[in-house]
């Protein structure tokens, strides 16, 4: 048996030099900024690819977004050798919060691979522009799938239909925990940025390069694999998606006021070697205390 694998990806602004543009007021100029497959989505695609190479499977990649989001699907396909691409695009989906987004995604996942149930859904850790990290778990919940977040490694037992996953649970200001958890399929995995697939036998390597070549060829003709679905094709009630389906709204955006002045700084000019020397003396005194 092989696995039915889904990957959720997102088109995101490319914040790197040469791609990003800012408005005069310092906010992101979305129109001028190039977009690409989000970094976390790329890692999710990689995890799906590993699963396909190691266990065999049918990969469906999906994204909710404007028509141009198909380039994210194409990029994901070139990473994971997807067999099917879904784009959920409808003006009614615009400005959805996480709950309304999850509503669209879960319905899309149910339509993948001719309606077969998925065994594993992969998503990125969080998006770099919105970065709530909520959409994945909410989609999982709506599907009724077990959600496993921060997964840094995993293996599948095909016979028992179990997954064994290693999770990195970071608790700021406290411990970090590495947890091994086992769960029956189907599962929804939000892959951690630290995840790295390891192909450590010659046969895995040869299979992976064969699939990768196929992936490049497929991505060059990605439109053949692409299905664009709107709310009608997804059979979604407009009242539950987009703005009407969103419990939350953005009320206002404001500048964070300056913190109160807590100390009075001694000002040293950068060329003032004596001043710097004194500072160093101070550093050494403090450290040796």
């Amino acid at each position: 048996m092989t696995l039915n694998i889904a990957v959720l990806v997102k088109l995101e602004p490319d914040f790197s030099e040469g791609s990003v543009s800012y408005n005069p007021d310092g906010t992101l100029n979305r129109a001028e900024t190039k977009s690409k497959l989000g970094a976390h989505s790329a890692i999710a695609s990689l995890a799906a690819f590993y699963t396909k190479v190691k266990y065999g499977g049918y990969i469906s990649v999906s994204s909710m977004g404007p028509p141009m989001a198909e380039i994210a699907l194409q990029e994901a396909q070139s990473i994971c050798d997807a067999d099917e691409l879904h784009l959920y695009s409808d003006r009614l989906f615009a400005s959805a919060d996480t709950l309304a987004t999850a509503e669209v995604l879960q319905q899309g996942i149910r339509k993948m691979n001719n309606g077969k149930e998925m065994d594993i859904v992969f998503s990125g850790h969080r998006a770099s522009d919105g970065e709530t990290g909520q959409t994945g778990p909410q989609t999982a919940w709506k599907l009724g799938f077990t959600f496993l977040g921060n997964v840094i490694d995993f293996s599948v037992d095909l016979n028992k239909r179990f997954i064994l996953a290693k999770r990195l649970v970071a608790l700021p200001g406290f411990y970090d925990i590495v947890e091994e958890i086992q769960a029956p399929l189907p599962v929804f995995i939000a892959i951690d940025p630290l995840y790295k697939p390891i192909f450590d036998t010659i046969s895995l390597r040869l299979t992976s390069s064969r699939y990768l070549k196929e992936a490049k060829e497929r991505a060059a003709n990605y439109k053949t694999y692409l299905k664009v679905l709107d709310h009608k094709k997804l059979e979604l009630d407009p009242r539950f998606v987009g703005l009407p389906g969103s419990p939350t709204i953005v009320h206002k955006v404001e500048k964070i006021p300056k913190a109160r002045t807590t100390r009075t700084a001694e000002l040293i000019e950068g060329y003032d070697r004596e001043g710097i020397k004194n500072t160093i003396t101070k550093i050494l005194q403090l450290v040796q205390k």
């Binding site: 300056k258 100390r263 700084a265 001694e266």
Partner: peptide, 8 residues
Amino acid sequence: DVCDVFIK
């Protein structure tokens, strides 16, 4: 506003 030494 929050530092002790500011090297410009």
